[in-house]
Design a binder for these strands. Structure first.
Lengths: 361, 361
DNA sequence: TCCATTTGTGCAATCGATAGCATGAATTCC
DNA sequence: GGAATTCATGCTATCGATTGCACAAATGGA
């Protein structure tokens, strides 16, 4: 019953069509088929049309594996991504997939998650001869970086700085941290705290350091340093600890290294009966969607993910073309989003509409 | 300066090592190298050790593209996944990646998101000669299914039923819906509502239909049908609508087709001053992590994602081995999680500890 | 009318790894 | 000690697509 719907190379069953079988069927040489399908001007229009018609009639699909064997490029980009439970990585993944498709690249999903990358996994980058590699994991994947360097695979990192090798595109985390510090200080907060993410993640360090430096420069005591991992659970635990402090020592403003942490902090504070922002202001950083909506309406600095990925892919493409280029670090400015999770300075009070009023960071 | 760290085929710069260059260097034939590296017993232990040492010394990596050209299998699995902003898909992605690595498969990330799949994207499944395909998108990707069938590519769907072709692994959504209905009815709710997801998604339909049927069977009026898309925004809008209803007509129990919807409903209800579960009970389905923690502590039916993926990969593997097998539909039972978002029947009241007390659905 | 181009195709090698078959050497058996 | 194996390895074709080069036909000019 399936016979009619089944078409196969040379009319036999089960085999896929190849340039060779198409050539036999069309009565030409394989090279002619190849050239015709690639619109080589040396093939006469009639032959080209005839072969194109035949190919689409039988549903021929070129074998990219064979093509890349001779051509040298696989069309594959290795993708290493952080834990996608974090909405930031989810957004990055989504955008990376659609942008890669636009450029005709396919993504080899090498790793997703918080853990380190296994050797066997990292090896697949070479085994499949990826043309480039995109890393968005905060965890330092030194193994992948090393492999890429040793084998001349272009490497671009997003949302983290490159420590040894490769280019990177990142949000200007220091500027964002300073901006948030300025916001809280101007709103009259006096006892501040920072909630840090993972100790080895550049984003967390840059954000909290810049925040602390700015606070100190404003003449306030150095912020209390809390946290130490980038998760809702850590934010929640930190929020509980803050809520347990006496009213006299408790910070009145908390800056979190990520929206994920900020959501945890807010959840814990509210669970303990504290009001945000009336009792404590909480600000985050990333601008992920769940943090911008109910029940958080977080004041945060949004990363320009679209621009970041576009730049990252540009960097990759340049290097994939073989032009030797030095590694670059591209910083893009984030966008301050005034939500309802932090008291505002008097001069901004009119702007306090969640997700509506924004200003450049 | 980089010279020392740079190693390449045949000692020339820039070229990667191949079996041929290794063979020349070792003074043997290419086939010997190939066999030695694959632990062919016909190669003498000495030669094998010598070649293995050389290969690891120069960092040889086999070209999988070339291997699959002759071997017929690429080791690639095509992955089509739904919008990973939804924590359910994020969890599925994460688990799929690690499980695939365990089996030595690599994932070609074909599509991620809610939109339909473009032809060019779907074609890459054939171009890269994927050995199989895993679909977890609720959106009916008929194009991919058609392509897979026409080309004999094994296809397994997770979290949705197969409409035309391919096997499927899913949570028993009807049983889950009935279980939630039973829970709400026994807890004394009388005016119920369901919030549906996308109109074309099998999971949403099965869950809400079974819920409604069970409610009616219990002698209560048919639940109010709300919603119509699987998003937090739709849940929120529905929650607002429910909150706006008069106290006499407002449902006292709401069953949502997903945790994402349930979170939106809870957020809106609370924003409007209603208490959950004191004023209204809300239950969801999926068991995603954000719904289980503060501030939701949702009562829900958790999908056994690990088991589902394991079964899905088993199904794929069987069919990839070439053994012809009929399509299967595998249903796995979900796990009821008693949170704090719904009033409990009297006989279960002691079990109301979030995320702790569970029972099979 | 004959040679020099231009134009369209075919032949054969190539990419890297694998597998069937052949070959030479080492071993065993009677 | 010679023949029959066993064993280790080499030679070569193969997978599917691409590409340099050769070659034939068609066209042009003188």
């Amino acid at each position: 019953m399936e016979m009619a719907g089944r078409s196969s190379g040379d009319g036999e069953t089960g085999e896929r069509w190849t340039v060779a079988s198409l050539a036999r069927r069309a009565g030409v040489a394989a090279s002619t088929v190849s050239r015709a399908l690639r619109d080589d001007p040396r093939i006469s229009p009639e032959v080209r049309a005839r072969i194109a018609a035949l190919a689409s009639e039988v549903g021929y699909t070129p074998n990219v594996l064979a093509r890349s064997l001779v051509g040298g490029r696989s069309g594959l980009i290795g993708l290493v991504i952080g834990p996608v439970e974090n909405p930031l990585y989810a957004a990055l993944l989504q955008k990376a997939v659609s942008r890669a498709a636009l450029r005709g690249w396919r993504l080899l999903l090498v790793h997703a998650g918080a853990g380190p990358i296994e050797q066997a996994t990292a090896d697949s980058l070479l085994q499949y001869r990826v043309d480039g590699c995109l890393i968005t994991s905060a965890q330092l994947p030194s193994r992948v970086a090393t492999i890429c360097r040793a084998n001349g695979v272009p490497l671009v990192m997003v949302n983290r700085v490159a420590w040894e090798h490769g280019s990177a595109v990142s949000c200007d985390n220091r500027a964002g941290g300073a901006l948030l510090a300025d916001l809280l200080v101007r709103a009259g907060h006096r006892r501040l705290a920072v909630v840090r993410g993972g100790p080895a993640t550049s984003t967390s360090l840059e954000r909290t350091e810049a925040f602390a430096a700015h606070v100190v420069a404003a003449g306030l005591p150095a912020p209390l340093v809390l946290g130490g991992a980038n998760s809702h659970a850590m934010g929640y635990a930190t929020g509980e600890a803050v809520a347990a402090m006496g009213a006299g020592e408790r910070p009145d403003g908390v800056m979190c290294a990520s929206d994920l942490l900020a959501m945890g902090v807010v959840d814990a504070l509210r669970e303990r009966g504290l009001r945000v922002p009336d009792d404590i202001s909480v600000v985050g950083m990333d601008g992920t969607e769940p943090a911008l909506r109910a029940p958080y309406y977080l004041t945060t600095v949004a990363q320009p993910l679209d621009d970041m990925l576009e730049r990252a892919f540009d960097l990759l493409q340049d290097r994939m073309r073989g032009v030797p280029r030095a590694d670059e670090l591209v910083l893009l400015r984030g966008e301050l989003i005034l939500g309802r999770s932090a008291r505002l300075p008097a001069d901004l009070a009119g702007d306090a509409f969640p997700g509506q009023s924004r200003m450049d960071a």
